[in-house]
């Protein structure tokens, strides 16, 4: 018998217990930022060490892990983190949202609705939603404690004053269970409604800032807005060029050096699954003016 080179999922058991305690506290107080003793991980902070530590603390040998970055399973960051856990925890990995028990993510929530029993772990760079107008940590802590959240609306006011509408498109602030204001990590606001009432457990880890927070299943999550400027998600004029999906988040992809571009699902698994099911979009790159007619699926 050979001893593993690393402890299961890299972190030692004591550290994992400490992180689990922070997670449990976060689940008990939805949206509240729990400080934790963030550890050095064998990767730089920008790679989502907070999310990696949370994943390491909750992963069991029978889990099936999916890792996405900007919706894609095949970017360097996603591939590295998946490989890291395949090696240190020997867990099965997948790109299929439906097959995963744990999904670590940066920038997106999958298009396929999450289900009970699944856990989604968000990588968070800046957990404090009040930071941009109040840099003092002592003060933001009091503001959360006393539910003084007027500053969030100052930011949204400023957006409208400058752009005519709320121009914040990602890391769009939400209020959790009518109590804590939370930064949902840099997901597009398109994904905000998916957080509300989700049957999955949602965990957020910020490594450099040493914070963990959580949304237990079926938590009420409301995107903040003004009565006369209600929250709205991004809308796309055309369906996915590859799978013809509508009502999904699309990325603009440059297809040649003559200004050709097309819009495709940012969730690569969603797109592939739909194509396997026989859906297909207009397909060809759109050059210059949009004259190409779309095929019906």
């Amino acid at each position: 018998m050979t001893l593993p080179e690393y402890n299961f999922a890299y972190l030692d058991e004591q550290t994992k217990r400490m992180i689990r305690r922070a997670i449990l506290k976060g689940i008990a107080i939805p949206g509240y930022q729990v400080p934790f003793a963030s550890r050095e991980m064998p990767m730089p902070y920008g790679w989502g060490t907070g999310g990696v530590q949370v994943t390491a603390a909750i992963l069991g040998p029978d889990d099936v892990l999916k890792v996405i970055d900007q919706g894609a399973d095949d970017t360097t960051n996603a591939v590295s983190i998946r490989a890291f856990f395949a090696k240190t925890a020997n867990v099965a990995t997948t790109t299929k949202t439906a097959d995963a028990t744990v999904i670590q993510t940066r920038h997106r929530i999958p298009e396929a609705p999450l289900s009970a029993g699944q856990v989604i772990v968000y990588q968070v760079p800046i957990p404090e939603p009040l930071r941009f107008l109040e840099p003092r940590e002592t003060e933001t802590r009091v503001m959360h404690g006393l539910e003084e959240y007027g500053l969030i609306h100052v930011k949204l006011y400023e957006d409208i004053a400058q752009h005519g509408h709320i121009a914040t498109t990602y890391a769009y602030p939400v209020k959790v269970e009518d109590r804590y204001v939370m930064d949902p990590s840099p997901i597009p606001k398109f994904d905000n409604p998916k957080m509300n009432g989700s049957p999955a457990l949602q965990l957020f880890g910020a490594g450099r800032e040493k914070r963990i927070y959580a949304l237990p299943p079926f938590t009420n999550v409301v995107s903040l807005d003004f009565e006369d400027h209600p929250f709205e998600v991004q809308k796309f004029k055309q369906p996915c060029a590859l799978c013809n999906a509508t009502g999904v988040y699309l990325d603009e992809v440059v297809t040649d050096d003559r200004g050709g571009r097309m819009y495709v699902c940012s969730d690569t698994d969603h797109c592939e699954t739909r194509r396997e099911e026989g859906h297909h979009g207009p397909g060809l790159p759109i050059s210059g003016a949009q004259t190409v007619k779309e095929d019906a699926a």
Binding site: V154, I160, E227
Partner: peptide, 13 residues
């Protein structure tokens, strides 16, 4: 407007 928003005003106009 900050104080107004602090006491709960939510109508931009």
């Amino acid at each position: 407007g900050e104080r107004l928003m602090a006491i709960g005003d939510r109508h931009y106009g």
